[in-house]
Structure formats: structure tokens, C-alpha cells
């Protein structure tokens, strides 16, 4: 390389010391990584078109396309009830876990708090404990209280499953929050509540919102607790898919899957936008 050559390596250029095997490895890695990305995406991508198949089969090629399975999903009474239940449960659980989780996170970020590690470990443990154990415990507990076959039990169980995500995202966001701003508001006469509502919250809300999204997704996707705590009237979308998969595979399940995928794409895009906004507000570049 001449002295005037740019010192920065340009992709896909190789460093001068890279020999044949280095280049070979590079392409092997590239191929492997792309294959892995295909493995990650393919199952979902392959299944989607089959939801538009007129025939109730799960094989290619598709002879003719139709929206009849979507029509069934959106008009069938059982599925409609499942959609309604899913939203009622997930939204209630999200409100509960976001409120409680955000408050606790504000408390947890207080500097030198004795017992913080233990408290955090306990508050986050619902994320780690197998869902079956949570469901069994909830089943015993809510049966004793007499609310086993009700929406209330499911909402409470889902809310506690969602709180770890809120705690993790909000404490992470608060770690980048300049507490001096809060103190400044306080010194200018704002009450703690006002200072939090008008100063802290507007700055950390991307973190709060992404925690809420995680909590929503957790509840929206949860089936084991619903399986034990819900009666026929509390069927949710995943619960309905579970029944469908065990009894008879109907393309309506795939239509439901497509709708769920659209919802998750929406959530992912929202989250990405929030992440960018958060990074921008903190003056970080990514």
C-alpha cells in the first residue's frame, strides 16, 4: 500500500495480512449467517401464503387464492370472542404492570438503596420462573379465592408476568436520565409528583412505552395461564390456536397467525422508532 492510500479499511476489502483461508472463512461465515437468517425468517414466511389458499391444505403449490379463512376469522363468533378477550386481558394487564413497574423503577434507581439487588431479583423473577409453575400456583390460589374461572385471575397473572419487562426497560432508561433535571424542578418549587409528571416522564416515556409493549406482547401471547384459569368464556386468540392445533389444523389458524404477525411487526417498528428517539434524546448516535 502506498503512503497516500487511505488508512481506513473499506468493506469488503481485506486487511493486508488476510490470506486465502482468511478470505475463504469470511465467505463461509457470510453464507452461514445468511442461512441462519433464512432459518429464522423462513418458517413464518412460508406459512403466511398458505393462509390465502382456497383449499384447506398446507401444501404448495397453491392452486387458487382466497380470503375466506380471514373472513372466517373475522366473522366466526368463537374467534371474535377470542379477539375481544385477548385485547381486554392484554390491555388491562399492561396498564397494571406498566403503572406498578414504572413506579417501582423510579424507586429502584434511587442511589445507594440497601437491598436493591435482592429486590430487583425478586421483582424480575416472574420472567425466569417457568410459566407452568406460575400457572399451577395461580390455579391453586385463585381457586381458593373463588376467581379461578374469571377474567380477573388471568389479568392479575398476566400483569405480574409483564412487570419484569417494564422494570428492566424503565430502569435502563432511568439510568440515562439526568437526575439534576428533576432536582432543578424540585428546587423551583414543583412537588415531587409534578416534577415527575412534567419533567421525568416526558423524557423517559420511550422506555416506559417499550416496557408496556413488552408487557402487552407477553399477555397477548400467553396461553398456559389461560389454559388453567380460563373457562370457555375466557378463550383468547392463542388459546383458540392451541385448540385448533391439537384438534384439527384449519387454515383459519394461519389467518389468525397472519393477523398476529402484522400486530408484532407493528410493535417491532414502534419499538425501533422509540429506540431511535431515545438514543437521539440522549445525544447518542447509533
Amino acid at each position: 500500500m502506498s503512503a497516500s492510500a487511505k488508512p481506513v479499511q473499506k468493506a469488503p476489502g481485506f486487511a493486508p495480512y488476510v490470506r486465502f483461508w482468511g478470505k475463504f472463512n469470511h465467505y463461509v461465515l457470510l453464507a452461514f449467517s445468511l442461512a441462519t437468517l433464512v432459518f429464522l425468517m423462513a418458517p413464518v414466511l412460508v406459512a403466511i401464503p398458505l393462509a390465502f389458499n382456497t383449499d384447506p391444505y398446507f401444501t404448495y403449490p397453491i392452486q387458487s387464492f382466497s380470503l375466506k379463512w380471514f373472513k372466517e376469522f373475522f366473522t366466526d363468533e368463537v374467534w371474535q370472542m377470542a379477539v375481544k378477550n385477548s385485547f381486554i386481558i392484554a390491555i388491562s394487564a399492561t396498564i397494571l404492570s406498566t403503572t406498578l413497574g414504572t413506579l417501582a423503577s423510579v424507586g429502584l434507581t434511587h442511589r445507594n438503596l440497601p437491598g436493591r439487588a435482592l429486590i430487583t431479583a425478586i421483582l424480575v423473577s416472574p420472567m425466569i420462573v417457568p410459566i407452568m409453575i406460575v400457572a399451577v400456583g395461580a390455579y391453586f390460589f385463585y381457586s381458593t379465592l373463588g376467581i379461578a374461572n374469571s377474567m380477573v385471575g388471568i389479568v392479575l397473572a398476566h400483569a405480574v408476568l409483564g412487570t419484569p419487562f417494564v422494570v428492566i426497560t424503565v430502569t435502563a432508561t432511568l439510568a440515562g436520565f439526568d437526575q439534576a433535571l428533576f432536582r432543578a424542578a424540585r428546587s423551583l418549587g414543583a412537588s415531587p409528583m409534578t416534577a415527575f409528571r412534567r419533567i421525568t416522564l416526558p423524557i423517559i416515556w420511550p422506555g416506559v412505552f417499550s416496557g408496556a409493549l413488552f408487557a402487552f406482547a407477553t399477555s397477548f401471547d400467553e396461553v398456559v395461564v389461560v389454559l388453567f384459569l380460563g373457562s370457555v368464556e375466557q378463550r383468547t386468540i392463542p388459546r383458540q390456536m392451541w385448540t385448533g392445533l391439537r384438534e384439527q389444523l384449519s387454515p383459519t389458524i394461519l389467518a389468525a397467525a397472519v393477523v398476529l404477525i402484522l400486530i408484532s411487526v407493528g410493535m417491532l417498528l414502534t419499538l425501533e422508532a422509540l429506540r431511535r428517539r431515545n438514543a437521539k434524546m440522549r445525544g447518542l448516535k447509533d
Partner: peptide
């Protein structure tokens, strides 16, 4: 995003996709 999309996709949806793909008359076998 390609990693996160499956991460955000419902567990039931992904399991359904594998049933569709791997079953006897499924996509992989065909």
C-alpha cells in the same frame, strides 16, 4: 430486524409454522 421479528412473533404462530412445514404432507416433505 430479521432477528427481532421472529422474536416478536407469537410463540403459537411460530409453532404453527413448524407444524405446517414439518408435518407429513407439509412443505418440507413436499
Amino acid at each position: 430486524v430479521l432477528v427481532l421479528l421472529p422474536f416478536w412473533t407469537s410463540l403459537l404462530v411460530r409453532t404453527t409454522a413448524w407444524v405446517v412445514l414439518l408435518q407429513k404432507e407439509g412443505v418440507v416433505n413436499s
